[in-house]
Nucleic acid binder design. Sequence first.
RNA 1: GGCGGGGUAGCCAAGUGGUAAGGUCGCGGUCUGCAAAACCGCUAUUCGCGGGUUCGAUUCCCGCCCCCGCCUCCA
Length: 472
Amino acid sequence: MALRFFNTYSRQLEEFRPRDPAAHNIDIYTCGPTVYSRAHIGNFRAYIFEDLLQRHLELRGYKVHRVMNITDVDDKTIRGAREAGVPLSKFTAQFKQAFFEDIETLRIKRADEFPAATDRHYIDKMIEMISMLIFRGLAYQAEDKSVYFRINKFSDYGKLAHFDLTQLQSTGRVKHDEYDKEHIGDFALWKAWDEEDGNVGWESPWGRGRPGWHIECSAMATALLGDQIDIHCGGVDNIFPHHEAEIAQSEGVTGKKFVRYWLHCAHLLVDGQKMSKSLGNFYTLPDLLEKGYSGREIRYALMRVHYRAPLNFTWEGMDEARQALARIDEWLARLLETSGDKIDDKNVDIELGQQFEEALDDDLNISAALGFLFESIRETNRAMDRNELDAASANTWLNWWKRINSVLDLEGETDELPAAVAQLADERERARLAKKWKTSDELRDRIAALGWEVRDTKDGQKLTRRREAQSG
RNA sequence: GGCGGGGUAGCCAAGUGGUAAGGUCGCGGUCUGCAAAACCGCUAUUCGCGGGUUCGAUUCCCGCCCCCGCCUCCA
């Protein structure tokens, strides 16, 4: 089956045809974080979706060039820096660093570039684009000295969000400078400096100011990826106005179709509502790590639901993720044992497990893919229970796992057995040989208290690391 | 009001014009000194509601209800 994705622009599943099918090179632009505070796990749901997308495309033989921007100047970063009494760059640096720590914890592949909005190179590019938009009559400087995009001059404006501009209603979330703008929907390309900006600002043909939010993505995307890009992703809340504005700005300058496929991720909900900073109903990665969950458990929990369906965050869901991963871990450990530890990565059966990859071809249907994985786990476990799986077959399954794990990246870390646990296990071994069951059980409890589970098998004790949540 | 997404078992969730994958939880069993893991069995006569088309609808069509989001800060 061919790769296909749901394109927000057409609101349809479309077969994926990159700009340059022969070269197998794909450009992806993804909207990154605004570094005014630590990102929450709702933000990371989107980044994990993008990670899954990139990894699956790579599995399918594409070379992906991905850019993720860092918004390090806007109202919130300026306010944060002012309140903290530190320079803007110092204020944002801490959250940039936290962001990179978090994506590493979640095993999200790093983009090839992380351009920052305040980079002089991109400020120049933004000024250049705005000048061109003014030259073409698509933008104007208003009384307040800010430069706005003239949406009535761009006939496609509203096509991505499928909005009728005459129907736009103010939600009152943002204050409008209605007296300065020609149309309430005109958005800022360049914001004139005001007192609250302090020493943040850049000189421009329109006076001192700073870029509007939308223009940074147009500038960085075209600067790094060219006038046309294959895939552009983000959360559904970016569809309007952000991505709509990006189309207007980019196409207004280049005259070429900006993006071939727009992919948007649904929200992470908590108690049935969107997780967001403004509602205060959010968790950060350190919040969950403190509760005893690992990065890969969080990765699984955020990845296991199709990206276009809303995902409700619950502690029950976290525990489900933990148990599902433990099942995978046990399976892998058993396969490794059955294969006789003789890993031969040449023994790849490409027919094996096709369903997994075909499910992902279908608009990243991760639930169906995981369903197939777990069915395979049950079948191979059953075969191993009956001693019907030979070493070569076990090896083949391991190689298959290696392949799909290049997409999932869910393999467990192997924890070193602490000396204290090993000693208790030795004691227990002796107690068991003497059939001192009570002592044996007490030692099992003590080992469990140290975070390890002990199981008795035909080949003796097996010790497995077991994390316990600190209770939700 | 406009534009989207969602409603399938206790919870999460896939799916198809032919009678419901998978995960998790719970119960029973095999195994075990007891456990654990694994496996086996049970757990939705039914897919938000009401009509229609059809031999047959959870799937297609029409109408309605509920939840969530966007409508110029937002992943």
